[in-house]
Design a protein around this nucleic acid. Structure first.
Lengths: 197, 197
DNA sequence: ACAATTCTCTACCAAATGGTAGAGAAAGGT
DNA sequence: ACCTTTCTCTACCATTTGGTAGAGAATTGT
C-alpha cells in the first residue's frame, strides 16, 4: 500500500502544479490534499524539486503514450491521421487540463531541467514533423511549415485546456460539449488548411 | 521624479511576473531590481495583489492600443488586415515576451479579478470576431469559426512568445530572425487557410 | 523660510516555506 | 515471535514572505 502513497502524491502534485504552477503550491498543501504529513511527502521525494521533476517525467511519458497509441491506430490518410492525433491529445486536455498546464510550466524551469524534459518529448515531435514533411513532399498535404503546424496545434489545444477565460472571451463555453465542438472546428480548420489543391 | 518610481515598479513587476508568474516573484525581488526598499513598493501599491491588478490593467491597455492601431492603419483586404494584426501583436511578443506571459497568468487569478480583466479585453476581441464573421458572410474569407481563428492566433503567438523550448523542439530558433520567419509562416498559413475558394 | 505633504527607509511582526532530526508504528522476512 | 526495514509522524529550524509601525528625508506650496 505504501507505493500507493507515492503515486497519490504524484497525482495530487501533478494536478495542483498543472493548475496553479510550481511556486504557488506548497508541500503542506500537497500533503493536506493527500491526507499525510508534509514529511511523508519528503520521505518519498527528498526535495520539492525532485517531486517537480518526477511529475514532469510522468507527464512526458503519458503524453507520449497517448500520441503514439493514436498514431498506431490511425488511418493511412494524412488528414485522418492528423485528426486522430489532435483528438487523442484533446481528450486528456479536456478531462485533465492540468496535464497540459504542466507542459507549459516547463518554460519556468532552469534550463538543465527543461532540457531533460524537452529531450524526452523530442523524438515524438520529430517523428511528427518528419512524417508531415514526407506527406507534403508526396503531395498528400498542402505545403506549409511542419514545425509551425505542430506548434500551432500544440499551442491551440494547450490554450483551450488551460485558459477557459480566453475561450469565453471569444464566445465559446468551456463545458464538455462546447470543447468538443471547438475541437471539431479546429480539426475542420486544419483539414481545410492542409488539404492538397 | 516620484511618479517615476511608481512606473518603474510597474515595469519591473510586469517583466518579472510575466516571465515567472505572480507567485514566484516576491516583493523583495521587485524592490531589489528597482533599487528601492520593499516598503517603497508597498507605499505605492498597498498590497501585492493591488500591484498585480495594476500590472494587468496596464497590460490590457497596451495590447488594446497595439491592436487598435494596427486595425486603424490596415488595408481594407481582410487577409491583409489579418496579417497586420498578427504582425502588430507579434512585435511586442518578440520584444517583450513577458507581456503575453502576463495575459496567460490571468487564468491563475481568482475569478472576480480575471473577469475584470477579460472584460477589458472583450470589446476588442468581439470586434475582431464580428468583423471576421462579416467578411466570411460576404465571401471575402473562407468560412470557419471566427472565435476559433482568434483563439488559434492568440494561442500560437502567445506560445511562440512564452515557450521558446517548445519552439526548439519543433525545429525553430527562438532568435529574432527565426521568430520573424516563423511569424511569416504563420501569416502564410492563415492566408492559405482563410483565402476564399 | 517654514509648514505640510509626500516619499523612502529601518525595524519589527506573524505566518508560511522547504527543509533536518529522530521517534515510533507498520510491514516484511526469517 | 522477533528482528529488520520501511513508512509515517511530531518537533524543530532558518529563511522568506507580505505585511504594520513609525521616523526622517525630500519635495511642494505658501
Amino acid at each position: 500500500m505504501a507505493r500507493q502513497t507515492r503515486q497519490t502524491i504524484l497525482d495530487v502534485a501533478g494536478n495542483l502544479f498543472g493548475n496553479r504552477g510550481f511556486d504557488a503550491v506548497s508541500l503542506d498543501q500537497i500533503a493536506a490534499e493527500v491526507g499525510v504529513a508534509k514529511q511523508t511527502v519528503l520521505y518519498w521525494f527528498s526535495t520539492k524539486d525532485e517531486l517537480v521533476q518526477e511529475v514532469l517525467a510522468e507527464t512526458a511519458v503519458e503524453l507520449t503514450v497517448v500520441v503514439e497509441a493514436a498514431i498506431r491506430s490511425a488511418p493511412d490518410d494524412p488528414l485522418d491521421r492528423m485528426e486522430a492525433v489532435v483528438k487523442a491529445v484533446f481528450r486528456p486536455a479536456v478531462r485533465r487540463p492540468s496535464l497540459l498546464g504542466l507542459v507549459r510550466e516547463i518554460s519556468r524551469l532552469p534550463s538543465e531541467s527543461s532540457e531533460r524534459l524537452t529531450d524526452s518529448l523530442r523524438p515524438l515531435v520529430e517523428r511528427a514533423v518528419n512524417w508531415m514533411k514526407a506527406e507534403m513532399d508526396a503531395g498528400r498535404l498542402r505545403r506549409a511549415d511542419p514545425g509551425l503546424i505542430v506548434a500551432l496545434a500544440y499551442a491551440t489545444v494547450t490554450g483551450i485546456a488551460t485558459e477557459p477565460e480566453a475561450l469565453r472571451v471569444v464566445g465559446w463555453n468551456a463545458d464538455i460539449a462546447g470543447l468538443r465542438r471547438l475541437r471539431d472546428e479546429l480539426v475542420d480548420f486544419l483539414r481545410a488548411a492542409l488539404a492538397p489543391r
